[in-house]
């Protein structure tokens, strides 16, 4: 989450060079960071409970969403670089 917040702040830093499209990258990374922030308490509780019960369900949807966010950021970045 902190890495996504940092990256979103870095994206904002490049607003003068790349213009408004960079706000898309900022929005995606900031939204992903917010989603992680607001869901982390539940995931932490589930992990703690899982350790005490010796059984944790693999969090597939979280992994797939995070990977999708990374790919979306990359795709948008390529579009912005090629269009610039």
């Amino acid at each position: 989450m902190l890495a996504l917040v940092t990256v979103s702040a870095i994206f904002l830093r490049w607003l003068p060079q790349h213009g408004l499209p960079i706000l898309l990258l900022f929005a995606v990374s900031a939204s992903a960071a917010a989603a992680i922030y607001f869901s982390q308490r539940g995931r932490y509780s589930a992990s703690s409970r899982g350790i005490s019960e010796e059984s944790v369900d693999a969090d597939i949807s979280a992994v797939l969403w995070t990977a999708f966010a990374g790919m979306l950021l990359g795709g948008l970045g390529v579009g912005i670089v090629l269009a610039g």
Partner: peptide
């Protein structure tokens, strides 16, 4: 994923 984010940020920085 952190490495991937660093590469994404680096790519935009180079440009």
């Amino acid at each position: 994923i952190r490495t991937s984010l660093a590469l994404l940020a680096g790519g935009i920085a180079i440009e």
